[in-house]
Each structure stands twice: as C-alpha cells, then as structure tokens.
Design a protein around this nucleic acid. Structure first.
Length: 103
DNA sequence: CGCGCGGCCTAGC
DNA sequence: AGCTAGGCCGCGC
C-alpha cells in the first residue's frame, strides 16, 4: 500500500538528526522507490505546521530549500542555521558537509 | 475512468 | 553555469 510508503517517508524524515539534511531522492531510494522522489515531496507538502517532522531538513538534490515550504523559506533557513548548518550564497545547503545518510 | 499536476531527478543545449 | 524537456508515480477532480 502507499500508506506504507508515506509512513516510511515520515519515519525517515523524523529520524534526520539535528544539523543534517537529506534529499527527496535519497528518501525515495530508502523507501525502495527511487522514482518516487516527487511523492516524497508530496508527502511533506500535505503535512501541516506542527506535525513534528523536521521537513526543513529536507532539500532537493541541489541543496536548495523548498519554494513552497509550509513554514516559509526564511524560517527554514533560520532553523537550519540554528542547528549549525552553513548556507552557501544562493540559499543553498552545503550538502557535502551536512548531507545525512540514513543509518 | 481519464487527464493534469506536484516541496523531484537527470540529461541535454 | 543556467534553462528546458522528459520521465516516473501517486493523488485529486
């Protein structure tokens, strides 16, 4: 069922450690559906503020923040910076340092 | 049941 | 280096 898919996605997202980030594609891969990266984004999108999931730690493969982030881009960046994540010029996350590999 | 869209990804120009 | 064009999959209308 797809419910399982979402469940896994949420589970993975909730496991992202502080000060780290991951990508949609990676999550999609972890749930055994590499092509479903979009669904991952969709899964986060349907969430509401206060769900408890650190969706601000999820970025695309370029390390960019989501344009339609529920809490707002500025907030997302702020949160990440608080966690010690360095940002590049173009509001991008330094993936090489903060890309989180699921363990 | 069929069509279009999305917090994406990859490849090409 | 930045933009455009497909592609895969699931949800909504």
């Amino acid at each position: 069922m797809n419910d399982d898919f979402y469940k896994k996605v949420y589970d993975i997202v909730s496991k992202i450690p502080k000060g780290k980030v991951t990508t949609y594609g990676e999550i999609a891969y972890l749930v055994n559906k590499p092509k479903n990266a979009r669904q991952v984004g969709y899964a986060l999108r349907v969430l509401e503020p206060g769900h408890g999931l650190p969706c601000h730690r999820v970025v695309n493969s370029l390390g960019e923040l989501s344009p339609n982030y529920v809490f707002g881009q500025g907030k997302q960046k702020e949160l990440l910076e608080k966690e010690g994540v360095q940002f590049l010029e173009n509001n991008r996350v330094d993936m090489k340092k903060y890309f989180w590999k699921n363990i």
